[in-house]
Structure formats: structure tokens, C-alpha cells
Lab assay of single mutants.
Amino acid sequence: SHCAGCKEEIKHGQSLLALDKQWHVSCFKCQTCSVILTGEYISKDGVPYCESDYHAQF
């Protein structure tokens, strides 16, 4: 499978399933500020955001 963030193949190591896609753990980050999302996040149109950036933009 391929990472939804960087589009590279996910080989051995940690990956996560979010928004119905596979991601490298380090690629699942806020679209705006690039903080790596480990806990709470909000998505809009399949794109992840941290809570503060989501509320600031939408």
C-alpha cells in the first residue's frame, strides 16, 4: 500500500489507518501547520487538520 501523505510505499514499520487511507505515522500531519497528528484531529474533504487550525479556517 502507499502512503496518502507522501505517496511512497509503506514498507515495514508503523503505519496508521485514518480517513480510510494508510499513512506513515510521520506523514499524518496538519495540512496547515505540519504538526504530526497523534491524537485529536479534524478532517475536511479527506484532509487532516489540527483542531486549532481547523477552527481558525472553517
Score class of each variant (00 low, 15 high):
13 G>E: 09
55 H>K: 12
15 S>H: 08
47 V>R: 13
8 E>R: 10
57 Q>S: 15
44 K>T: 09
23 W>Y: 13
55 H>S: 07
38 T>A: 12
32 T>I: 13
49 Y>W: 06
16 L>Y: 13
7 K>I: 06
24 H>V: 00
11 K>Y: 10
20 D>Y: 04
46 G>P: 01
30 C>G: 01
51 E>M: 12
28 F>I: 03
46 G>F: 08
51 E>K: 07
13 G>R: 06
43 S>W: 08
40 E>V: 10
30 C>Y: 00
24 H>E: 03
31 Q>M: 04
5 G>K: 13
9 E>Y: 07
36 I>Q: 12
10 I>A: 04
44 K>C: 03
24 H>P: 00
39 G>P: 05
9 E>L: 12
46 G>I: 02
17 L>R: 07
36 I>H: 04
11 K>P: 14
4 A>M: 11
27 C>W: 00
32 T>H: 10
20 D>T: 10
57 Q>F: 15
53 D>I: 00
31 Q>E: 12
5 G>R: 06
58 F>G: 15
57 Q>D: 05
26 S>R: 14
16 L>P: 08
48 P>G: 06
54 Y>C: 14
9 E>A: 12
55 H>T: 15
38 T>M: 05
13 G>A: 07
27 C>G: 03
25 V>C: 14
48 P>Y: 06
29 K>L: 01
22 Q>Y: 15
17 L>A: 14
58 F>N: 06
25 V>N: 06
49 Y>H: 09
49 Y>G: 02
31 Q>G: 13
35 V>P: 00
1 S>M: 03
52 S>P: 12
11 K>G: 11
1 S>F: 04
23 W>L: 02
7 K>G: 10
41 Y>T: 06
24 H>A: 00
17 L>M: 14
52 S>I: 09
10 I>Q: 01
25 V>D: 08
38 T>D: 11
47 V>A: 13
16 L>R: 15
27 C>A: 02
29 K>S: 03
47 V>Y: 12
41 Y>Q: 04
23 W>Q: 01
12 H>F: 11
10 I>C: 02
55 H>D: 12
30 C>T: 01
2 H>D: 08
30 C>K: 01
23 W>A: 03
38 T>K: 13
56 A>C: 14
32 T>V: 13
29 K>V: 05
33 C>G: 02
47 V>I: 13
14 Q>W: 00
14 Q>A: 13
18 A>C: 10
4 A>I: 15
10 I>Y: 02
37 L>P: 02
19 L>M: 10
37 L>R: 03
27 C>M: 00
58 F>W: 09
47 V>P: 03
50 C>S: 01
4 A>S: 15
25 V>Q: 14
57 Q>L: 11
36 I>F: 07
42 I>F: 12
44 K>F: 06
1 S>I: 06
56 A>N: 14
16 L>I: 13
4 A>G: 08
34 S>D: 09
20 D>G: 13
2 H>A: 01
4 A>C: 11
3 C>N: 01
43 S>Y: 14
13 G>P: 08
42 I>P: 04
28 F>E: 01
38 T>G: 10
28 F>M: 05
53 D>F: 02
33 C>N: 00
48 P>S: 05
23 W>S: 03
45 D>W: 05
46 G>V: 02
47 V>T: 08
34 S>Q: 09
23 W>R: 03
27 C>K: 02
51 E>N: 11
2 H>Y: 11
41 Y>I: 04
32 T>K: 13
42 I>R: 14
45 D>G: 11
28 F>K: 03
33 C>P: 02
24 H>N: 01
1 S>N: 06
35 V>Y: 03
49 Y>S: 03
15 S>A: 14
5 G>H: 04
16 L>T: 12
25 V>L: 11
30 C>R: 01
12 H>N: 13
32 T>M: 06
39 G>W: 03
42 I>H: 10
43 S>R: 04
29 K>P: 02
31 Q>R: 09
33 C>R: 03
42 I>D: 13
38 T>C: 07
56 A>W: 07
30 C>N: 00
31 Q>D: 07
28 F>G: 01
44 K>A: 13
26 S>L: 09
13 G>Q: 13
28 F>R: 03
54 Y>P: 10
5 G>M: 14
23 W>F: 12
1 S>R: 15
12 H>T: 12
34 S>T: 05
57 Q>C: 08
43 S>I: 08
25 V>K: 15
26 S>W: 11
2 H>M: 11
10 I>V: 12
29 K>C: 10
15 S>L: 08
55 H>N: 11
25 V>Y: 05
22 Q>L: 08
38 T>R: 12
38 T>S: 12
17 L>G: 12
57 Q>P: 06
12 H>E: 15
49 Y>L: 07
7 K>R: 10
57 Q>K: 05
4 A>Y: 15
25 V>S: 14
50 C>K: 03
50 C>G: 01
40 E>Y: 15
48 P>L: 08
24 H>F: 00
40 E>I: 05
56 A>T: 09
22 Q>V: 10
56 A>V: 10
18 A>L: 07
12 H>C: 06
40 E>L: 04
37 L>N: 01
34 S>W: 04
49 Y>R: 03
8 E>Y: 09
35 V>A: 10
48 P>C: 03
19 L>A: 08
26 S>H: 10
16 L>W: 03
50 C>W: 00
41 Y>D: 03
48 P>K: 03
33 C>K: 02
5 G>D: 09
24 H>G: 01
49 Y>N: 02
48 P>A: 12
43 S>L: 11
33 C>W: 00
56 A>G: 12
42 I>K: 15
25 V>G: 14
51 E>D: 15
24 H>M: 00
11 K>W: 05
7 K>S: 10
8 E>N: 09
32 T>Q: 13
46 G>A: 08
9 E>S: 11
16 L>Q: 09
28 F>W: 08
48 P>N: 06
20 D>Q: 11
14 Q>R: 09
57 Q>E: 06
34 S>C: 14
33 C>E: 03
49 Y>A: 02
42 I>V: 12
22 Q>P: 13
3 C>W: 00
37 L>G: 03
20 D>M: 12
12 H>I: 07
1 S>A: 04
17 L>V: 12
31 Q>Y: 06
3 C>Q: 01
54 Y>N: 08
17 L>S: 12
20 D>E: 15
16 L>D: 06
14 Q>D: 15
38 T>E: 15
29 K>N: 07
11 K>L: 14
50 C>D: 01
9 E>F: 05
56 A>K: 15
17 L>Y: 05
40 E>Q: 05
57 Q>R: 10
18 A>R: 14
2 H>G: 04
44 K>I: 08
22 Q>D: 12
18 A>D: 07
30 C>D: 00
53 D>T: 04
8 E>T: 08
55 H>E: 13
56 A>I: 06
10 I>P: 04
52 S>T: 09
55 H>C: 15
24 H>T: 00
17 L>D: 14
12 H>W: 05
36 I>M: 09
15 S>Y: 05
37 L>W: 00
4 A>K: 14
45 D>S: 07
9 E>Q: 08
17 L>P: 15
42 I>G: 14
10 I>S: 04
17 L>K: 07
33 C>T: 01
42 I>Q: 14
33 C>Y: 00
36 I>C: 15
30 C>F: 01
58 F>L: 09
32 T>S: 10
44 K>R: 11
23 W>N: 04
46 G>W: 01
15 S>P: 14
30 C>W: 00
26 S>I: 07
8 E>V: 10
3 C>T: 01
39 G>A: 09
54 Y>W: 09
48 P>H: 05
58 F>C: 08
31 Q>F: 06
30 C>M: 00
53 D>Y: 02
36 I>V: 13
34 S>A: 13
30 C>P: 01
50 C>N: 00
2 H>I: 13
18 A>Y: 07
20 D>A: 09
14 Q>H: 06
46 G>D: 05
1 S>W: 11
57 Q>I: 15
58 F>A: 08
43 S>M: 06
2 H>E: 06
24 H>L: 00
39 G>T: 15
6 C>W: 00
40 E>G: 07
27 C>V: 00
22 Q>C: 12
45 D>E: 11
38 T>I: 11
24 H>W: 00
36 I>P: 06
50 C>F: 02
33 C>I: 01
16 L>S: 10
47 V>D: 06
